[in-house]
Simulated assay, not measured.
Amino acid sequence: MSTQDRDHIMELLPQQREELLRMMQQRFETYVHRHPELEWTGVMAKLAANPSKLGSLHAMERTGGEPDVVGYDVESEEYLIFDCSAESPKGRRSLCYDHAALEARREHKPKDSAVGMAAAMGIELLSEEQYRRLQQLGAFDLKSSSWVRTPARIRELGGAIFCDRRYDTVFMYHNGAESYYAARGFRGCLRV
């Protein structure tokens, strides 16, 4: 994601907002099994009350995430929106894990890091638990993989974790945080 993209991430024209909300509503109604007890009117009310979240939602959509509502956190009173694209979002691949990993690479640096790009988009990487929750809603990352939020103790030792789905099973793996691959991106969570 370029600096220019980051600087303009929150600015949506009225037509862009309408198109984004129409697309979100259509996806919400198409994939009812992801949120069987929730209604679009509640989601729409939260988005209307938090217009700054639309920029993040737009960034998720623009980078291929196909965001959708996957639940409601009763404690925080927020809807959870995850990237639900079949494979790790194409606009967020070939990234190392975080800024420290990006800086540690001496040659062949990727364009960005997963943590940095997520922060610029106003979202968080899914945790392993959230990733496994997503996988209960369908079969995701059958050909790709996704960085997930790495526990501090693993990151302090130079590692990072990622997940995918193979053989009808969700796997968690490790890699050096500075590594990056064309088939590995990240999935995010937006709370509204």
Rank of each mutant, 00 (worst) to 15 (best):
A59Y: 09
F171A: 10
S113E: 07
L95T: 14
V148S: 13
H8T: 06
A120F: 13
A183K: 14
T150V: 08
L21T: 04
K109L: 09
V115M: 09
L137V: 07
C84Y: 09
R153Q: 14
P110E: 11
D98Y: 04
H99F: 05
M172H: 07
E107Y: 02
S94A: 10
Y131Q: 09
E103I: 09
L13R: 05
F140C: 07
R34Q: 04
V69D: 01
R22P: 09
R17D: 03
T41R: 01
A101L: 03
F171S: 09
G71S: 10
A48Q: 05
E66Y: 11
H35W: 00
T63G: 06
L38A: 01
A59E: 11
A160H: 03
Y31R: 04
S88Y: 12
E18M: 02
M117N: 12
L126N: 07
L20G: 00
I81V: 08
E61L: 12
F28D: 01
A104H: 09
I123S: 06
R166M: 14
N175R: 03
D7S: 14
Q136Y: 03
D141G: 07
D112K: 01
I154Q: 10
K109G: 05
H33Q: 11
V69K: 01
K111E: 12
P14Y: 04
L47G: 02
A183S: 14
Y180F: 08
L57P: 01
I154N: 13
A86C: 09
S145H: 06
E128S: 13
V70A: 00
L12D: 01
R132M: 11
G122N: 10
G42W: 01
P89E: 11
A100W: 00
H99V: 13
M24T: 00
V32D: 13
V70W: 00
R153I: 15
E78Y: 02
A114H: 05
A160V: 06
W40H: 05
E107N: 04
G159H: 06
D73T: 04
P14I: 05
D112E: 12
H33R: 11
L125G: 14
Y31E: 08
A114E: 09
R92P: 08
L137F: 06
S52Y: 10
S179Y: 09
T63V: 04
A45M: 03
A139F: 04
E66A: 13
G158F: 03
A182F: 02
S76N: 12
G116L: 01
Q15R: 11
E87R: 03
Q25M: 15
R27L: 03
W40M: 08
R165Y: 08
K90G: 13
A100R: 02
E87P: 04
V74S: 14
E78C: 02
E77M: 02
A183N: 12
H35V: 00
L12N: 00
N50Y: 08
I161F: 11
G65Q: 06
E19F: 00
